[in-house]
Design a protein around this nucleic acid. Structure first.
Lengths: 128, 128
DNA sequence: CTTGACCTTCCAGTGACAGGAACCCTTATC
DNA sequence: GATAAGGGTTCCTGTCACTGGAAGGTCAAG
């Protein structure tokens, strides 16, 4: 299967699929003319990757998860550990962003947003 | 004032301050020996930048905010617009991350995390 | 035979720095 | 006067996960 059809099926851009081959997340065959050739296994791997990336897993985690998926003797604890570490990371980011939101929304609310120059947002950034 | 003292006062790494000069966010003088020389204005600008970055503003926004700060004839509406756009951006990120967290925490909760290979996390990523 | 839609590789850019090499300046000490 | 420590400087590379684009090969249709 050609790359554009593969892209259509997996929902991944062709560029991304080529990149995944370059970093050896997926290893498509080659047709006689040099075109990449994806089979069902590759499609499944790419769909797996698309879902893992959509959950925010980094490429290294994706590589580990793919390997665990492929390993019939895996321990679910290994999978869970990766997911939980990532979950903590996400929660930290949410906390950071929430703090920013709190400060910013307060500032935006108190700024008149008119033609005058006085602005609590700039005052807060300048402080003293 | 030398860069290391400036770094200490502003809380920014010296590397970051050099980078800000490179992209012309700040324009320190030079001493006779070629060392950068920061005065009070530069310090204020750097502290301003540190606060704006801590609120998640991108470099381009920081540049605009610095210019508005410097402009006595600014309209607070311009400042507010930048802040509100950024706030929306943050809220979108929080929403995205929250969705990931919901899915992930559910999966982590339902995964036994033991020596056995069966794992709802992988099942979910593989789907069909 | 040409057109257009594919495909290929390779190179550069993104954002906001961080790490490190190679080298200069200043001050103190031996 | 030599040297060592602790500043400073520039320049290059790497980060992360792609994205855009150029130059050129391949294929099916009209």
């Amino acid at each position: 299967m050609n790359i554009s059809e593969t892209a259509r099926i997996t929902g991944l851009p062709a560029k991304t699929i080529r990149y995944y081959e370059e970093i050896e997340l997926v290893r498509p065959d080659r047709q006689d003319n040099g075109y990449r050739d994806f089979n069902d296994t590759h499609i499944h791997q790419l769909r797996f990757l698309a879902r893992a990336r959509a959950l925010g897993f980094g490429i290294d985690d994706c590589r580990s998860l793919l390997a665990l998926w492929d390993d019939r003797d895996r321990a679910s604890a290994d999978v869970r550990h990766i997911a939980q570490t990532h979950l903590k990371d996400i929660e930290r980011k949410i906390a950071d962003l929430s703090a920013m939101r709190a400060t910013l929304s307060h500032l935006v609310d108190t700024c008149a947003g008119n033609d005058r120059p006085d602005c609590p947002i700039l005052n807060s950034l300048a402080d003293t």
